[in-house]
Every structure is written in C-alpha cells, then in structure tokens.
Design a protein around this nucleic acid. Structure first.
Lengths: 333, 333
DNA sequence: TTGTATGCGTTATCAG
DNA sequence: CTGATAACGCATACAA
C-alpha cells in the first residue's frame, strides 16, 4: 500500500515479483494481444491482486485511456417510472459492454453547471439528456467533453448530437382534439412544473384550431408529487365552473385526476374525461384504466445502441430517432 | 487543442503566453496562497480560458489531488420520493462545498460489482448506501476506496463507516401491535420486493408476541409500481377471507391499498385499516390521509454533514446516527 | 510574480 | 514473454 491504504498496481507488482507493466497486461489489458496467455506468471499476479484486494483506479485509467466506461443519465427530479425504465434498459445494454451507468440529477437550473461537472469536466463517455432538460440546458460544453450525446428534444438541432424526437406537441394536440370532438366543453390542462412548454403548446394549438380560447382558470400548475396534484384537481372540481375533461402533462397527474374524481364522486369518463401523458405501464392497471399520450410501448434499445455506436465512432453523422407518441385509448377518455 | 478537441490547460497556457503552472494557479488553485492576486496576468489567463472553453479534466485533477469532489447515492430501483428528498438535500449541502452528487442504481445484486465500479474503483469521495442495499452488499471494497461511507442499516457494524439506525423492525412491530390492540383480526402484510426482511420481521414479531400465527395467505409480495400493488390488494379484498387491516412496507403500497379499497367500496378505516411505511409528505394529502411508520419528518442534514465531516477527516470515529421511526397517526388507521 | 520539475496510477510502445 | 520508459492532464514544492 502506497499512500492512503489503497492498493496500487505497484503493490501488486512487488508482491508478485514482476513489473507493473506485466501486471497491467494481465489484469486489465484485454487478452486480444497476439500473445495468448503467459500461464505461469499470470496466476501469481492474479493471486497477489486478489490477496491485496486490488481494485484499480478509474482516474488514472481514464486519464491514460481517454475512456471512463461510464455513461450518465441527466434528469430533472422528481423521478418517475419512465426514468426508471430508461435507466434499467441502459444498464442492461451497458453492462454487456462493460459500462456502468450513473444518474445526474439537475434540480436547479441556476446550479446546472455545478451538477453537470461530471459531464463537462469529467470523463463520461456518453450522456443522455432527458426531456425537459434537453431544451433548457446549453449542451455545447457537454458535447465537447463527451464522445456521445443523446437528447430527447423536438426542437434541438446540434451538430454531433443524436436526438430523439417525440412529436410531443402534435401528440398533445391530437389528444386535445379528440376531447373536443367528443364534445367536451371545458378542458383543463394540468402541468407539471411549468417548463414542459411543448406539451402545453399542443393543448393550445388544438383549442385554437377549434376556434376556442384558452381559459386561464383551467390551466393549473400541479405540484411534483401525485398527492399534491390531487389537491389541485380537487380544487378545480370544487370550483364554480368545473372542467369536464383534464389533459395532464404526465400520467402521474392523470392518476391524480382519477383519484380526485373518485374523492368527489365525479364519474369518469362520463362527467370527467382524463388523459395522461407518458403511457406508463401503470396506466393499464389503474381504475379506470388511463387513456394516455405516449410511446405505444417503452423501448429504448435502439436509442441506447445509437449512443454506443457514437461512443465507438464519434464521427458518425448525427442521427434523428423517431419515437412517436400516439394516443393510447383506454377507459378514462 | 491537443488531441480530440478537448481544451487542455496547456492550450490555455499557450494562448495566454504563460506557463501551465500559472494557469493552474489562477484557475483552480485556491487563492489561499500567500500571494493575493497577480492582477495583470490573471485576466489574460481567464480570458483565454473562457475563449477556448476550458473545462478542466476531472480524471487528471482527481488523480493528482486524490479528490473528486463527488459523492454518490447508491440505491435500488424503483425510485421513490424518499430518494428524491435525500438527493436534493445532499445536493444542497454538497453544492455549498463545491461538490456534485450522482446516483448509482443497483438493479441486480448479481451485477452489483459492475454497477459499483464508480465507487470501488472510481474516485468518489463519499457514498451513501440507501436502506435495502446496505444489508445486501459487501461494503468492504467500497470502504477501502472512498474517504467516507454512510449506510442506512439497523444491523451493519463496520469499522470506519457511519451508519444510520432507523429501528425499522421495532417500528413495524409497534404499528402492527397498534392494529392488534385496535381489535383487527386479519392483518395483511404487503411487501415490496421480498428483501426488506427487517420490516417483515417487525410484523412477525408483533403477531407472535400477541400469540398469533402468521397467515401466509395474508402476506403478499407487491410489485414495484403503485398500480401493480393495487392489483395485489384487490386480489386480497376479493378473496374468501379478506383482511381487515393492511400493513405496507411502503407508502406507495399504502396508497395502493387505499385505492383498491375505494375501487371495491371497502370503507377505510372502518372495514380496512391501512398503515404505510416511509411517512412521505404525500401521506398527509391522500384521501383519507395515510397513517404511516417513518421518520416524523424527513431531514437528512445531520447525516450529510456527518458524511462531509468524514470526508474532511477519515480518521473520525464511526458515528451511529439515530433517525427513529415512529407511528404517525392519521385517518387511515 | 512566474516558471521548472516531479509525480499521481495506469496503459501503450517498444526493446531486450 | 517480460520489463523499462514515456505519456495522459493537472497541481504542487521549489527555484529563479
């Protein structure tokens, strides 16, 4: 042990009676070299490494190799099942390639630079920016510091970064239009944090196209959690002019609306139609099941593969992946 | 730009016409040196850095300084509001000290080593292991590789790692006993993933102390998501011998029980008492509000401070923090 | 006040 | 088949 108790490669080398170069070769150097296996010494090294509990040092390794074998998922709390799903699909694919995945929470935009240091100064080989953030953050620094960048965004267009288009705006317009066509008169909009501009605009688009005005009293900013959102919807329902439909920016808000309706004895979908966003798996199981705008089914494989393709070869032309959102009809609307 | 487009300190030095040492001094070296400020050149360096978009390189810096200014929160999906809360409290305190926080998801225990490489081989200055994981993972490697380790666990006892005791087992026993004393006959237990052994044991303890047997039919492993849990509870309620009380390992499960009861027209708490675990903020807002076992209020400040104290001085004696769980009475039981 | 030299732990290159 | 040796990018002690 050299300094602070951490076992270094030199410790292993001394214990095994060989050079550090040899240790590095047998321990980390892929056996892809011409020489197959130096059987006799190999075991000595491996034993020594195990005995000393050698774990390697990522900082040194990635400094030398210019690779960290790490990818990051950048997200804005609160967390969601959607994020969970994305994370585990990433992890599965990453694990198969020897990569690990970390999450990078960005809570406050004014502090984003600090949170993103892992990306901008660190050595993350690739990063995925989830929906809201892709549009609110300046990704130039991140792009220069990583081999690959993937962003969920319908507007972003940046050389060298792959992007996932969700056509959120048109999808929410479609959902709203569906409600209009079904004869709903007072369609409320339940937003999340106020930043998901695109989704809200889809709602506005549909109203305008139908020659209606946006009623500010029907547009509510829900809180982060489901139970908080319930309060908001209850308030709506208790008001003088309750809505006969709710479009929510998230499934979470959709469930909240269902729950608030149940609390107040409002029948869904007869008295209140509810449409969520995200099309999470839970939408199928709620009572009643939740009509939801979103990907028909969650599958990020293609996206993650594309990320790794670019990690392997950053000169690849920027791709534009389509993961279209559709209106998934269920019982609530 | 030296190699692949990343601006290095040398680039800045050349552009500014000074040495790298000087650049390092003005850009990163805390001005704690005796000399206050070399005003004239300083600006030149800073300008050059900005112009070239210099961002530094964590790998090199932490290799040299033996510090990464990074702390990790290790968790097992699914994510929860609890985790969100912990994360942002960490982030607040961390930001004030120039640190960033990352999340490390550990989905599969058999792949934990891979996921934890960031901790064991990487340069994370400190790590927080959240409840379930603290007991299922071998933390020795992690301890040797970080300056500070904090674990939520009632059983763990490891030199050099600080630990948060929650007395989960006795707390869940207390909750169950409360139900027994209230005359509940068939108390179901809704578990999460089957691994939260301690919580379940609390339930068992209480039953045994009351001279009752555990009815396997009343112990259900709920799914990860809320809507899945609803299905489980509905099934219970539809069974031949429905429970008159539910103890859930999480608030999520508690909400699910409330919802299932509403679906089935079962009155809470008259026909069915419900107690959740975690005492999340949402428990106050549900309808009816959810009685929940957990910290009276979520406040991780002391814990995070302790983590940083150990980062500053790893030789500190291991601390044992108490964040006692109590039964928070509300309308559902 | 600024520059030179050295090393952090690892891997890649190239001799022996 | 193994071992010197030289970087990777940065920060510090020390010399100028």
């Amino acid at each position: 042990m050299t300094r602070e108790g951490r076992t270094t490669l030199r410790d292993v080398a001394e214990a095994a009676g060989v050079s550090v170069a040899t240790c590095s070769y047998v321990l980390s150097g892929r056996a892809d070299r011409t020489t197959p296996l130096p059987e006799p010494t190999r075991k000595r090294v491996e034993d020594a490494a195990r005995r000393l509990g050698y774990k390697g040092n990522t900082a040194a390794r990635s400094l030398r190799r210019q690779r960290s074998e790490l990818i990051a998922i950048v997200y804005a709390p609160p967390v969601s099942p959607w994020l969970d799903h994305l994370t585990w699909e990433c992890e599965d694919i990453a694990a198969a390639r020897g990569y690990s995945v970390i999450g990078v929470p960005v809570r406050r935009l004014d502090r984003a630079a600090q949170s993103l240091r892992v990306i901008t100064r660190g050595h993350v080989d690739g990063a995925i920016f989830t929906p809201v953030l892709s549009d609110d953050l300046d990704l130039t620094a991140a792009r220069r510091s990583t081999r690959a960048l993937m962003a969920f965004s319908d507007s972003l267009r940046m050389p060298g970064v792959d992007v996932v288009r969700n056509n959120v705006r048109t999808a929410l317009a479609e959902a709203t239009t569906y409600l209009i066509d079904a004869g709903r008169e007072r369609i409320a909009y339940l937003s999340h944090t106020g930043v998901q501009e695109d989704r809200y605009l889809g709602y506005v688009d549909a109203l305008e196209q139908a020659g209606r005005e946006v009623d500010p009293a029907l547009v509510r900013v829900g809180a982060a959690s489901r139970e908080d959102a319930v309060l908001v919807v209850r308030e709506l329902l208790d008001g003088p002019n309750p809505p006969d439909a709710v479009v929510s920016e998230s499934d979470r808000g959709g469930f909240a609306a269902l729950q608030a309706a149940a609390d107040r004895g409002v029948k869904v979908p007869d008295d209140l139609a509810v449409i969520g966003t995200g099309n999470t798996r839970e939408a199928t199981n709620s009572m009643p099941s939740l009509t939801s705008v979103g990907m028909h089914q969650l599958d990020f494989t293609e996206m993650v593969e594309a990320l790794f393709a670019r990690i392997d070869d950053p000169t690849l032309p920027a791709r534009e992946l389509l993961m279209p959102w559709v209106l998934n009809h269920r019982a609530s609307a």
